[in-house]
Write a protein that binds this DNA or RNA. Structure first.
Lengths: 329, 329
DNA sequence: TTGATTTGTGTACACGATTACACAACTGCG
DNA sequence: CGCAGTTGTGTAATCGTGTACACAAATCAA
């Protein structure tokens, strides 16, 4: 009920000790009498005292805050991973600060703002910021970079994702089904990761003497998938569309069915990427290049732990994708 | 490149002024010579100096952090709103700390942890924590509560959501279509908000002399919607299912079609709640009780602003839902 | 010219914790 | 009993800012 938060000095007076002893009562292994600690914790509980994390951070040089730089949290393709990571961080008593790039014009300013909070770690999922900028802004933090734009800085850890084998598997199947005219519906034109993903499929096509006949660019959203697919199918003779993520794939499938009356998998093949839960829903049942999100986030946490243990960097972990077979290709 | 962050005192030496003057250079309206400010900002930029937000927070008693207590971020039904709010907060230079309750066992401990960071505001979207606990833990913050469990504390602001009119509209239509046997597929058994939502529909049914014939409980997920709908349709003769959110509604529709070969809207009616973007996707086209998420988040920001302006509370804003007509009912 | 006001800057303390150091009390050992 | 080592606690400095206060210089009014 009291509006004001009690401080360690005030609690010290109440418990008849010095504020240093209060601090010790809250530090797991420090020289303090058992009786004193118990008494202090009792008084603390009674008055609702908890050490001020801001003050503690200032003193420790350790904030226990983690910045997550993402495109958006509203898009299921990212949100699922984010949820897993947030869960893991919370379990380690780390608090996530989310920086949402998608609808923020000045992303550098946003990252600078977060960096003033002395975050202990930075995880970058967004392909909307350049790694150079990120490294520059978080130069005191050693950012953990996630599979975008590998930077040749030794202060950066890196998770590499390899989907080449699974992409080949999927392409082989579709080509064996008799399709020859492929199109790629990209997430964003400028994204490094998106170019890499496209290359997995392009290389697989090359083995069959094929190449993408058309390209389109969306923004990872259902609506962009829908709209671009319509345009794509009008201006090309594509009978197979590889999409930058699952949500766009669903949009493309709906567009083909609704606007052009072409149904997957009979009239054309649609392939997604990510392997989100929604891809397995009965109404979607998408064929997709899927990544094990739990393993992905485990890798992120692993890097955070190595960073904490101050192991010499830079570190790198590689994960491979698997094909999920649905009924759209 | 330098591993260490520069402090105001060090910068002061470099610029040939005192650290107080450095501080003034970064405070918009404070007595400082234009020439001095410009010189300091130049030197600051050169050395990558930015005031330490942790230290500033400790001094100001103002952290510019906002805690968002949510069930999950992976569930589209919540993620969309969260994205809108995060966007609005970032525009105001406030940073969100997300507390994800769904997969965290000790939610009180989680809230206590966040409260030690002296967050300026708390927004509670989760129905997995009791308001009493939240108010207790964040007693210094004046939590902004969102439409769950109204608490008779004058330190709590509140957003009330009224869907009774829209629910009546939807029920009227379905009853006029000739259906009489209604079931409610709830989000969680214990949730206050879920009971309220059910009541909107129950009241509307009562006007027709009807009542829910069956109830089931899920967890807001697609899988739970699917599974519970199967059980529900086996043990009752329901021909209309009102679901706790859109994702469960999609699960229920898929279950009816796949497992029992009953298609909406011909063989049964399915109604969702929330009105997320996905509900309007061509493959779903859900009839749903929808809320204007942008207006909702505007209201949250409005409350935050009133709180900042220190207007006398408690404050309350009411929003009403609208029906979205799809092809599932 | 003089006294009052404004302007710009430095000094010193506060914010709320942690921790190196000092020291008293107690333990154990020969 | 005396001395070394351990244990528990207090004192004071520190983390990096913001700001009240003091004060000199500059400006202004009459």
């Amino acid at each position: 009920m009291s509006r004001k938060r009690i401080t360690s000095k005030e609690l010290a007076k109440l418990a008849g000790v010095s504020s240093a002893t209060i601090s010790r009562a809250f530090s797991p292994d420090s020289r303090i009498g058992d009786a004193t600690r118990d008494r202090i914790l009792a008084v603390a509980r009674e008055h609702g005292y908890q050490p001020n994390a801001i003050a503690r951070s200032l003193n420790n040089q350790r904030s226990r805050l983690v910045a997550l730089v993402v495109n958006a949290i509203g898009n299921p393709c990212e949100a699922e991973e984010q949820q897993l990571l947030v869960h893991r961080l919370q379990a380690k008593q780390l608090l996530p600060i989310i920086l949402c790039c998608a609808d923020h014009t000045d992303r550098l300013q946003l990252m600078r703002l977060a960096s003033t909070y002395q975050v202990d770690h930075v995880v970058i999922f967004s392909d909307m910021v350049s790694m150079k900028d990120a490294v520059d802004i978080f130069h005191t933090t050693r950012p953990i970079i996630v599979s975008f734009e590998p930077v040749e800085s030794d202060s950066v850890s890196h998770i590499r994702i390899d989907g080449s084998a699974a992409a080949a598997e999927i392409i082989d199947k579709i080509v064996n089904d008799g399709r020859k005219r492929f199109a790629y519906l990209s997430g964003t034109a400028s994204s490094w990761i998106d170019k890499l993903r496209r290359k997995w499929f392009a290389d697989a096509l090359a083995k069959h003497g094929l190449a993408f006949e058309a390209d389109a660019y969306g923004d990872y959203s259902y609506d962009s998938g829908f709209k671009e697919a319509v345009l794509l199918l009008h201006r090309s003779k594509a009978d197979a569309i590889i999409c930058g993520n699952d949500v766009m794939a669903i949009g493309a499938r709906d567009a083909a069915r609704r606007v052009l009356n072409r149904n997957a998998p009979d009239d054309l093949a649609i392939v997604g990427q990510d392997g989100i839960a929604m891809a397995a829903w009965d109404c979607n049942d998408l064929t997709t290049l899927s990544l094990d999100h739990a393993a992905f986030m485990d890798a992120v946490v692993e890097l955070i732990e190595r960073h904490d243990a101050d192991l010499k960097g830079p570190h790198s972990i590689t994960l491979t994708c698997k094909a999920r077979w649905g009924t759209t290709a």
